[in-house]
Simulated assay, not measured.
Amino acid sequence: MSKKNKDIEVRVEETKKRVNGQEIDVTQLFIGKKMIGEVLTNDAKHFEIFMDNESQGVFKTLDEALESVIRQWNLHD
């Protein structure tokens, strides 16, 4: 018996957060109502991902960062 893959809806929301006195653009990823990770935009080429309030790495593009959040969530949940 094989499992069928089911589609999972990932929602992306952009917001701003105050970190160390600076306002930073933050992209939040949600599956259902659960936030699975955040991407902080440090500058045009540094996108740092956070999952469970822990830094998980820095990426050169927003797409790479979002993909990494989804991959890591998929491995651990």
Rank of each mutant, 00 (worst) to 15 (best):
I36V: 12
Q72M: 01
I70G: 07
I70W: 09
L66N: 06
T41C: 12
M35I: 01
V10D: 03
K6A: 13
D77K: 12
T61G: 07
F59P: 11
H76G: 03
V19I: 13
K60W: 00
H46Y: 09
V12M: 00
F50K: 04
I24M: 13
E9S: 07
K6C: 13
N74W: 14
E48S: 13
Q56W: 12
F47S: 12
N53E: 09
V26L: 00
F59Y: 12
S68V: 01
E67T: 08
G21R: 09
S2G: 14
M1V: 07
E14W: 05
I8A: 07
E48R: 12
F59D: 01
F59A: 07
H46Q: 14
T41A: 01
L29Y: 02
Q72H: 01
T61S: 09
N20A: 02
S2I: 00
I8S: 11
V12P: 05
M35G: 00
M51P: 02
Q22E: 14
E48F: 01
Q72G: 05
L29Q: 06
S2Q: 03
K3P: 10
L66V: 03
V26Q: 08
K6Y: 08
R11E: 03
E13F: 10
G57P: 15
K6S: 13
D52I: 02
D77R: 11
T41Y: 07
K60V: 04
K45A: 05
I8D: 09
V10C: 08
A44E: 15
I70C: 14
G21V: 01
E38Q: 13
I24W: 03
G32H: 06
F50A: 02
V10Q: 01
M1P: 11
T15H: 07
D77G: 10
